Amino acid sequence: MKKQNISEFSTTEELHNFLLENQDNNIFYKNVLEKFEYETELLKLQSQLVNLQNWISTQGKKVAVIFEGRDASGKGGTIRRFRQHLNPRTMRVVALNKPTDVEINQWYFNRYIKELPNAGEIVFFDRSWYNRAVVEPVMGFCTDQQYEQFMVQVAEFEHMLYESGTYIIKLWFSVSKEEQQRRFESRLNNPLKRWKYSPVDAKGQELWDEFSYYINQMFTRTHNSFSPWIVVNANNKNSARLESIRYLLSLFNYDGKMDSDIDLMVDPNIIQRYYRMVKEINY
Rank of each mutant, 00 (worst) to 15 (best):
K196D: 11
Q205I: 15
N131I: 05
R182G: 00
D126I: 03
E148F: 01
Q149L: 01
M160G: 14
V135P: 08
Q149K: 05
A202C: 05
Q180R: 05
F184D: 06
R187D: 06
C142Q: 04
M139S: 02
M151L: 15
Y167S: 15
R194Q: 14
E121C: 04
G120L: 12
Q181M: 09
L161I: 06
I169N: 01
I169F: 00
V134A: 01
F150T: 07
S198K: 08
Q180G: 13
E163S: 03
V123G: 05
R187L: 09
F124M: 02
S198I: 01
Y162A: 05
S174Y: 13
F150A: 07
Y130T: 02
R194D: 05
A119I: 01
E121T: 03
F124P: 02
N190E: 08
A155K: 08
G204P: 03
G204A: 02
E179K: 14
A119R: 04
N131A: 14
F173V: 01
Q149N: 09
K193N: 06
N189K: 15
E163P: 01
R183K: 13
E185L: 11
E178C: 00
E185Y: 00
K170N: 06
L161R: 10
E156G: 12
W129K: 13
K177Y: 14
P199E: 02
P137H: 09
W208T: 14
L192H: 04
H159F: 15
S198W: 05
G165R: 03
V138C: 06
T143A: 06
A133N: 04
E185H: 01
W129C: 14
D126L: 09
F150Y: 13
G165A: 10
Q153N: 15
E185A: 11
R187Q: 05
S128I: 12
N190C: 13
D209L: 06
N118D: 13
D144G: 12
W208L: 14
M139N: 02
T143C: 04
K177P: 07
N190W: 00
E136R: 12
R183E: 12
C142H: 10
F173I: 03
T143V: 07
E185N: 14
E121M: 04
N189A: 15
S176K: 14
V135L: 15
Y197D: 10
A119V: 02
Q205Y: 12
T166E: 00
M160W: 02
E148K: 08
E185W: 00
F124L: 13
G140I: 06
E206Q: 08
G120A: 09
F125Y: 07
G204Y: 07
R182F: 03
E136K: 08
E210L: 12
V152G: 01
P191G: 10
K177S: 15
Y197W: 11
F157N: 12
Q146K: 09
L207E: 03
S176C: 05
P191Q: 12
P117G: 09
Y197K: 05
E158L: 11
N190A: 11
S186E: 15
Q205C: 00
E163R: 03
V154K: 08
A119T: 04
G120T: 11
K177M: 13
D209M: 07
F173D: 00
R132P: 12
L171I: 07
V152T: 14
W172D: 01
E156C: 02
A155H: 00
R127E: 01
N118M: 09
R182W: 04
N190I: 07
S164L: 11
E178W: 08
H159A: 08
